[in-house]
């Protein structure tokens, strides 16, 4: 009887908390859940998507967003070979210090260099973007709740503002997935904005999906190694636990 009373009590508490949570849910729209190839225990990155995503990042995102933890050499992780990486790096110019006169000088980037940021510092970035700071994208997928779904929803979710919404300033767009609705980033993707060398049609959805996967990789480049190690670990510990269970039973059987 007591146990039943207890369950009733538990249920009541859960219901009160649950309804309170629903009432308090924020007005921001929840990003719809999507399937990503890198999700789950056996999930792995789709290298082709990562390479397309890098292209979108390089040609579109990188004109406003930095990615300070991206070094050209890291791109081996999306399946580029050393020669490609070297050639790619050489397309960019970085500032080095210093020549014989102590002056900074410019040189072509090398694989060990960071992907150059679009602005020299945060102030310059704000000044060029109407006061809003385009966040660094190195960890963006981990820095947002349900990162992949959120970024995909944000990139594809621009729409006409509701009639009663008052824009807080010039040049802002309406995106229901962004907290507050008004976002300083104009819709970044348009049909055929990039041309994929593998012939994939560059629809907005395709580009959003590709660049999201690239950003997921950039947030967690060691994921595949982690999951592979995890599998070996789990199997080993499972065997070990089984052995010690049998051993324990054997030892304890002398007591019964």
């Amino acid at each position: 009887m007591n146990r039943r009373l207890f369950r009733v009590l538990l249920l009541a508490v859960a219901m009160v908390l649950g309804s309170a949570a629903t009432l308090l849910a924020a007005e921001v729209e929840e990003p719809p859940a999507r399937d990503w190839p890198h999700e789950g225990i056996f999930g792995r990155y789709d290298k082709a998507a990562l390479q397309r995503g890098f292209q979108v990042f390089k040609e579109v995102c990188a004109s406003c967003h930095s990615a300070r933890y991206l070094r050209f050499r890291d791109l081996a992780g999306i399946g580029l070979d050393q020669a490609t990486i070297k050639a790619l790096a050489a397309e960019f110019t970085v500032e080095d210090c210093c020549d014989e006169n102590g002056e900074p000088f410019e040189r072509p980037a090398r694989p060990a260099d960071r992907f150059p940021p679009p602005y020299p510092n945060d102030q310059a970035a704000r000044a060029a973007n109407g006061g809003a700071l385009p966040p660094d994208l190195s960890l963006i997928v981990k820095a947002r709740d349900r990162g992949e779904d959120y970024i995909y929803a944000l990139l594809t979710g621009y729409e006409e503002p509701p009639a009663d919404a008052e824009p807080p300033g010039e040049g802002v767009s309406w995106n229901p997935y962004f907290p507050g609705g008004w976002i300083a980033m104009p819709p970044p993707l348009m049909e055929d904005l990039v041309e994929y060398p593998d012939g994939t049609p560059a629809t907005v959805e395709q580009m959003a999906s590709d660049v999201t996967q690239f950003l997921a990789w950039l947030s967690e480049p060691t994921m595949e190694e982690r999951k592979r190690t995890g599998l070996k670990y789990m199997l080993f510990v499972l065997v070990l636990t089984g052995l010690f269970y049998a051993y324990k039973r054997k030892i304890w059987s002398r007591l019964h």
Binding site: V237, L240, T241, F244, Y245, Y247, K248, I251
Partner: peptide
């Protein structure tokens, strides 16, 4: 032994 079995489950 019992602790090691428990350790396995925890791990």
């Amino acid at each position: 032994i019992k602790d090691l079995f428990g350790l396995g489950v925890f791990l």
